[in-house]
Design a protein around this nucleic acid. Structure first.
Length: 300
DNA sequence: AGCCAGGCAAGTG
DNA sequence: CACTTGCATGGC
Protein backbone atom coordinates (compact mmCIF):
# COMPACT_ATOMS: atom_id res chain seq x y z
CA UNK A 1 0.00 0.00 0.00
CA UNK A 2 1.23 3.45 -0.92
CA UNK A 3 0.42 6.61 0.99
CA UNK A 4 0.79 10.20 -0.06
CA UNK A 5 -0.65 13.64 0.28
CA UNK A 6 -1.77 16.47 -1.93
CA UNK A 7 -1.45 20.11 -1.02
CA UNK A 8 -4.06 22.22 -2.76
CA UNK A 9 -2.38 24.77 -5.02
CA UNK A 10 -2.55 28.25 -3.55
CA UNK A 11 -4.90 29.52 -6.22
CA UNK A 12 -7.23 26.54 -5.76
CA UNK A 13 -7.76 26.77 -2.01
CA UNK A 14 -9.74 26.27 0.01
CA UNK A 15 -11.03 22.73 -0.10
CA UNK A 16 -13.81 21.17 1.98
CA UNK A 17 -13.77 17.42 1.52
CA UNK A 18 -16.77 16.78 3.70
CA UNK A 19 -19.00 19.30 1.89
CA UNK A 20 -17.76 17.93 -1.44
CA UNK A 21 -18.45 14.24 -0.84
CA UNK A 22 -21.40 14.32 1.58
CA UNK A 23 -23.44 17.09 -0.02
CA UNK A 24 -25.46 14.92 -2.39
CA UNK A 25 -23.43 15.73 -5.51
CA UNK A 26 -21.62 12.40 -5.46
CA UNK A 27 -22.71 9.10 -3.93
CA UNK A 28 -19.45 7.28 -4.46
CA UNK A 29 -17.66 7.98 -1.16
CA UNK A 30 -18.35 6.29 2.16
CA UNK A 31 -17.03 7.10 5.58
CA UNK A 32 -14.32 4.55 6.24
CA UNK A 33 -14.12 3.39 9.80
CA UNK A 34 -11.55 0.76 8.85
CA UNK A 35 -8.89 3.35 8.22
CA UNK A 36 -7.74 3.56 11.82
CA UNK A 37 -4.32 5.07 11.29
CA UNK A 38 -5.83 7.86 9.21
CA UNK A 39 -7.52 9.20 12.32
CA UNK A 40 -4.30 9.85 14.20
CA UNK A 41 -4.47 13.65 14.50
CA UNK A 42 -7.94 14.82 13.56
CA UNK A 43 -11.63 14.35 14.23
CA UNK A 44 -12.51 14.69 10.53
CA UNK A 45 -13.81 11.50 8.97
CA UNK A 46 -11.88 9.44 6.45
CA UNK A 47 -13.59 8.36 3.24
CA UNK A 48 -13.17 5.48 0.83
CA UNK A 49 -14.21 4.82 -2.75
CA UNK A 50 -13.51 2.11 -5.29
CA UNK A 51 -12.49 3.43 -8.68
CA UNK A 52 -14.09 1.57 -11.60
CA UNK A 53 -11.77 -0.65 -13.62
CA UNK A 54 -12.23 1.68 -16.58
CA UNK A 55 -10.54 4.49 -14.65
CA UNK A 56 -7.44 2.79 -13.27
CA UNK A 57 -3.91 2.10 -14.54
CA UNK A 58 -4.21 -1.54 -13.54
CA UNK A 59 -7.47 -2.14 -15.39
CA UNK A 60 -8.95 -3.48 -12.14
CA UNK A 61 -11.08 -1.70 -9.56
CA UNK A 62 -8.88 0.12 -7.05
CA UNK A 63 -9.59 1.27 -3.50
CA UNK A 64 -8.71 4.84 -2.49
CA UNK A 65 -8.88 6.15 1.07
CA UNK A 66 -8.86 9.86 1.76
CA UNK A 67 -8.71 12.20 4.72
CA UNK A 68 -8.38 15.96 4.91
CA UNK A 69 -6.22 17.84 7.35
CA UNK A 70 -6.17 21.56 6.72
CA UNK A 71 -5.31 22.23 3.09
CA UNK A 72 -3.73 18.82 2.74
CA UNK A 73 -5.36 15.61 1.52
CA UNK A 74 -3.87 12.32 2.67
CA UNK A 75 -4.53 9.25 0.56
CA UNK A 76 -3.90 5.52 0.74
CA UNK A 77 -4.04 3.26 -2.34
CA UNK A 78 -2.10 0.61 -4.23
CA UNK A 79 -0.42 3.21 -6.43
CA UNK A 80 -0.02 6.98 -6.76
CA UNK A 81 -3.46 8.59 -6.81
CA UNK A 82 -2.36 12.22 -7.00
CA UNK A 83 -3.44 12.86 -10.59
CA UNK A 84 -6.62 10.80 -10.26
CA UNK A 85 -7.69 12.73 -7.18
CA UNK A 86 -6.89 16.13 -8.67
CA UNK A 87 -9.19 15.19 -11.56
CA UNK A 88 -12.00 13.50 -9.60
CA UNK A 89 -12.22 16.19 -6.93
CA UNK A 90 -11.57 19.11 -9.31
CA UNK A 91 -8.69 20.32 -7.14
CA UNK A 92 -7.48 22.54 -10.00
CA UNK A 93 -10.71 24.55 -10.07
CA UNK A 94 -10.02 28.09 -8.90
CA UNK A 95 -12.93 28.56 -6.54
CA UNK A 96 -12.24 32.23 -5.82
CA UNK A 97 -12.45 33.04 -9.53
CA UNK A 98 -15.48 30.81 -10.02
CA UNK A 99 -17.49 32.23 -7.12
CA UNK A 100 -16.67 35.77 -8.27
CA UNK A 101 -18.65 35.07 -11.46
CA UNK A 102 -21.82 34.47 -9.42
CA UNK A 103 -24.36 37.31 -9.45
CA UNK A 104 -24.55 39.23 -6.16
CA UNK A 105 -27.32 38.46 -3.73
CA UNK A 106 -27.81 38.02 0.00
CA UNK A 107 -28.40 34.26 -0.11
CA UNK A 108 -25.57 33.70 -2.59
CA UNK A 109 -23.15 35.66 -0.39
CA UNK A 110 -24.11 33.67 2.69
CA UNK A 111 -23.89 30.39 0.78
CA UNK A 112 -20.38 31.13 -0.50
CA UNK A 113 -19.23 32.32 2.94
CA UNK A 114 -20.59 29.28 4.74
CA UNK A 115 -19.79 26.54 2.26
CA UNK A 116 -16.63 27.81 0.55
CA UNK A 117 -14.45 24.88 -0.40
CA UNK A 118 -17.23 22.75 -1.87
CA UNK A 119 -16.05 21.33 -5.18
CA UNK A 120 -18.13 19.52 -7.77
CA UNK A 121 -17.08 15.96 -8.59
CA UNK A 122 -15.82 14.54 -11.87
CA UNK A 123 -17.47 11.20 -11.32
CA UNK A 124 -17.61 8.18 -13.62
CA UNK A 125 -20.70 8.35 -15.81
CA UNK A 126 -22.38 4.97 -15.36
CA UNK A 127 -22.49 4.99 -11.54
CA UNK A 128 -23.68 8.61 -11.63
CA UNK A 129 -26.41 7.81 -14.14
CA UNK A 130 -27.71 4.97 -11.96
CA UNK A 131 -27.46 7.01 -8.76
CA UNK A 132 -29.54 9.85 -10.15
CA UNK A 133 -32.09 7.47 -11.67
CA UNK A 134 -32.45 6.24 -8.09
CA UNK A 135 -32.68 9.82 -6.79
CA UNK A 136 -36.26 10.43 -7.91
CA UNK A 137 -38.52 11.17 -4.93
CA UNK A 138 -35.77 10.10 -2.51
CA UNK A 139 -33.72 11.75 0.20
CA UNK A 140 -29.94 12.05 -0.08
CA UNK A 141 -29.06 9.47 2.61
CA UNK A 142 -31.32 6.84 1.06
CA UNK A 143 -29.93 7.44 -2.43
CA UNK A 144 -26.49 6.79 -0.97
CA UNK A 145 -27.75 3.71 0.84
CA UNK A 146 -29.12 2.28 -2.43
CA UNK A 147 -25.76 2.76 -4.18
CA UNK A 148 -23.98 0.94 -1.34
CA UNK A 149 -26.48 -1.90 -1.59
CA UNK A 150 -26.00 -2.15 -5.36
CA UNK A 151 -22.23 -2.28 -4.96
CA UNK A 152 -22.26 -4.85 -2.16
CA UNK A 153 -24.75 -7.08 -3.97
CA UNK A 154 -23.58 -6.93 -7.59
CA UNK A 155 -20.15 -5.26 -7.63
CA UNK A 156 -16.71 -6.85 -7.84
CA UNK A 157 -15.14 -7.36 -4.40
CA UNK A 158 -11.73 -5.77 -3.89
CA UNK A 159 -9.36 -6.62 -1.03
CA UNK A 160 -7.49 -3.73 0.51
CA UNK A 161 -5.66 -3.46 3.85
CA UNK A 162 -7.17 -6.79 4.95
CA UNK A 163 -10.72 -5.54 4.32
CA UNK A 164 -13.16 -6.22 1.49
CA UNK A 165 -14.68 -3.34 -0.46
CA UNK A 166 -16.92 -3.46 -3.53
CA UNK A 167 -16.72 -1.63 -6.83
CA UNK A 168 -19.94 -0.23 -8.27
CA UNK A 169 -21.34 -2.84 -10.69
CA UNK A 170 -20.54 -2.55 -14.38
CA UNK A 171 -23.40 -2.29 -16.92
CA UNK A 172 -22.95 -6.00 -17.56
CA UNK A 173 -23.16 -6.89 -13.86
CA UNK A 174 -26.26 -4.74 -13.32
CA UNK A 175 -27.92 -5.99 -16.50
CA UNK A 176 -27.65 -9.50 -15.09
CA UNK A 177 -29.76 -8.53 -12.08
CA UNK A 178 -33.50 -9.07 -12.29
CA UNK A 179 -36.03 -6.39 -11.51
CA UNK A 180 -37.04 -8.39 -8.44
CA UNK A 181 -33.40 -8.51 -7.32
CA UNK A 182 -33.35 -4.73 -7.51
CA UNK A 183 -36.67 -4.32 -5.75
CA UNK A 184 -35.27 -6.45 -2.93
CA UNK A 185 -32.72 -3.65 -2.45
CA UNK A 186 -35.63 -1.23 -1.86
CA UNK A 187 -35.28 0.61 -5.15
CA UNK A 188 -39.08 0.58 -5.52
CA UNK A 189 -40.42 1.68 -8.90
CA UNK A 190 -36.89 2.77 -9.91
CA UNK A 191 -35.88 -0.90 -10.19
CA UNK A 192 -37.29 -1.18 -13.72
CA UNK A 193 -35.54 2.02 -14.81
CA UNK A 194 -32.18 0.79 -13.50
CA UNK A 195 -32.67 -2.62 -15.10
CA UNK A 196 -33.69 -1.18 -18.48
CA UNK A 197 -30.86 1.38 -18.52
CA UNK A 198 -28.15 -1.13 -17.57
CA UNK A 199 -29.48 -3.65 -20.09
CA UNK A 200 -29.57 -1.13 -22.93
CA UNK A 201 -26.03 0.08 -22.26
CA UNK A 202 -24.78 -3.49 -21.99
CA UNK A 203 -26.56 -5.04 -24.99
CA UNK A 204 -25.95 -2.07 -27.31
CA UNK A 205 -22.44 -1.57 -25.94
CA UNK A 206 -23.09 2.17 -25.62
CA UNK A 207 -20.07 4.34 -24.86
CA UNK A 208 -21.27 6.82 -22.23
CA UNK A 209 -18.05 8.83 -22.34
CA UNK A 210 -19.18 10.46 -25.59
CA UNK A 211 -21.41 12.69 -23.43
CA UNK A 212 -18.25 14.54 -22.32
CA UNK A 213 -17.37 15.59 -25.86
CA UNK A 214 -20.92 16.55 -26.84
CA UNK A 215 -22.24 20.06 -26.21
CA UNK A 216 -24.40 20.50 -23.12
CA UNK A 217 -27.63 20.37 -25.17
CA UNK A 218 -26.50 17.31 -27.08
CA UNK A 219 -25.36 15.57 -23.89
CA UNK A 220 -28.74 16.11 -22.25
CA UNK A 221 -30.53 14.69 -25.31
CA UNK A 222 -28.17 11.72 -25.35
CA UNK A 223 -28.71 10.99 -21.65
CA UNK A 224 -32.49 11.23 -21.87
CA UNK A 225 -32.63 8.18 -24.14
CA UNK A 226 -32.35 6.07 -20.98
CA UNK A 227 -35.43 4.95 -19.05
CA UNK A 228 -35.83 6.95 -15.86
CA UNK A 229 -33.76 9.87 -17.14
CA UNK A 230 -35.73 13.07 -17.65
CA UNK A 231 -34.55 16.66 -17.82
CA UNK A 232 -33.54 16.96 -14.16
CA UNK A 233 -31.62 13.68 -13.90
CA UNK A 234 -29.89 14.43 -17.22
CA UNK A 235 -28.79 17.80 -15.81
CA UNK A 236 -27.31 16.07 -12.76
CA UNK A 237 -25.33 13.59 -14.85
CA UNK A 238 -24.19 16.33 -17.25
CA UNK A 239 -22.92 18.39 -14.31
CA UNK A 240 -21.46 15.75 -11.98
CA UNK A 241 -20.05 13.31 -14.52
CA UNK A 242 -19.85 14.94 -17.96
CA UNK A 243 -18.05 18.16 -17.01
CA UNK A 244 -20.82 20.47 -18.20
CA UNK A 245 -20.44 23.09 -15.48
CA UNK A 246 -23.22 25.27 -16.87
CA UNK A 247 -25.92 22.68 -16.08
CA UNK A 248 -28.39 23.69 -13.35
CA UNK A 249 -30.42 20.76 -12.04
CA UNK A 250 -33.64 22.26 -10.67
CA UNK A 251 -34.80 19.98 -7.89
CA UNK A 252 -37.38 20.81 -5.22
CA UNK A 253 -34.79 22.65 -3.08
CA UNK A 254 -33.50 24.81 -5.93
CA UNK A 255 -37.07 25.40 -7.05
CA UNK A 256 -37.86 26.85 -3.60
CA UNK A 257 -34.71 29.00 -3.67
CA UNK A 258 -35.61 30.36 -7.10
CA UNK A 259 -39.19 31.09 -6.05
CA UNK A 260 -38.11 33.08 -3.01
CA UNK A 261 -34.86 34.72 -4.18
CA UNK A 262 -35.03 34.76 -7.99
CA UNK A 263 -38.75 34.67 -8.88
CA UNK A 264 -38.21 36.15 -12.33
CA UNK A 265 -36.34 32.99 -13.37
CA UNK A 266 -39.21 30.64 -12.55
CA UNK A 267 -41.38 29.31 -15.38
CA UNK A 268 -44.03 26.60 -15.40
CA UNK A 269 -41.78 24.36 -17.51
CA UNK A 270 -38.61 22.75 -16.17
CA UNK A 271 -36.61 23.47 -19.32
CA UNK A 272 -37.44 27.18 -19.31
CA UNK A 273 -36.61 27.58 -15.62
CA UNK A 274 -33.31 25.72 -16.01
CA UNK A 275 -32.43 27.75 -19.11
CA UNK A 276 -33.11 31.00 -17.26
CA UNK A 277 -30.95 29.82 -14.36
CA UNK A 278 -28.06 28.89 -16.67
CA UNK A 279 -28.26 32.31 -18.26
CA UNK A 280 -28.51 34.20 -14.96
CA UNK A 281 -25.83 32.34 -13.01
CA UNK A 282 -23.28 32.32 -15.83
CA UNK A 283 -20.60 29.94 -17.13
CA UNK A 284 -20.26 28.22 -13.73
CA UNK A 285 -24.00 28.10 -13.09
CA UNK A 286 -23.69 24.50 -11.93
CA UNK A 287 -21.32 25.60 -9.17
CA UNK A 288 -23.73 28.37 -8.16
CA UNK A 289 -26.48 25.76 -8.00
CA UNK A 290 -24.33 23.55 -5.77
CA UNK A 291 -23.73 26.36 -3.27
CA UNK A 292 -27.42 27.35 -3.26
CA UNK A 293 -28.46 23.70 -2.86
CA UNK A 294 -26.16 23.26 0.12
CA UNK A 295 -27.35 26.55 1.64
CA UNK A 296 -30.99 25.59 1.27
CA UNK A 297 -30.44 22.18 2.84
CA UNK A 298 -28.47 23.76 5.67
CA UNK A 299 -31.37 26.11 6.35
CA UNK A 300 -29.45 29.32 5.59
C1' DA B 1 -52.09 9.93 9.62
C1' DG B 2 -50.52 12.44 6.16
C1' DC B 3 -46.88 14.71 3.73
C1' DC B 4 -42.74 14.82 1.41
C1' DA B 5 -38.25 13.54 -0.65
C1' DG B 6 -32.38 16.00 -5.83
C1' DG B 7 -38.93 12.96 -10.89
C1' DC B 8 -40.38 10.24 -14.49
C1' DA B 9 -43.33 7.70 -17.90
C1' DA B 10 -47.57 7.17 -19.80
C1' DG B 11 -51.98 8.77 -20.68
C1' DT B 12 -55.37 12.41 -21.81
C1' DG B 13 -57.30 16.86 -23.59
C1' DC C 1 -47.98 21.41 -26.04
C1' DA C 2 -49.70 21.53 -21.09
C1' DC C 3 -51.62 19.04 -17.53
C1' DT C 4 -52.72 14.74 -14.59
C1' DT C 5 -51.89 10.33 -12.47
C1' DG C 6 -49.47 6.32 -10.58
C1' DC C 7 -45.48 4.86 -8.68
C1' DA C 8 -42.20 2.35 -3.62
C1' DT C 9 -40.28 3.51 0.40
C1' DG C 10 -39.31 5.42 4.92
C1' DG C 11 -38.68 9.39 8.18
C1' DC C 12 -40.84 12.95 10.48
Amino acid sequence: MKTGSIHCPADARPFNLRASVEGGHTFRWQRDYGAGEMYDDTALPAYVTVLPATETESGSPEVVRLRQSGDRLYWQAEYDMTEVLIDHLRLDDELDSITKTFPDGPLMSRAVDEIMGLRLPNDPIFPTLIAFICSSQMRVPRIHQMQVALAETFGTPVEFDELTYHAFPTPSQLAAASEDDLRALKLGYRARYVKDTASLIHTEDIDLSQAIDLSYDEAVDFLQQFMGVGAKVADCVALYACRHLEAVPVDTWIQKVLESEYPSLVDSSYNETARAARSHFGPYAGYAQAYLFAAARDGL
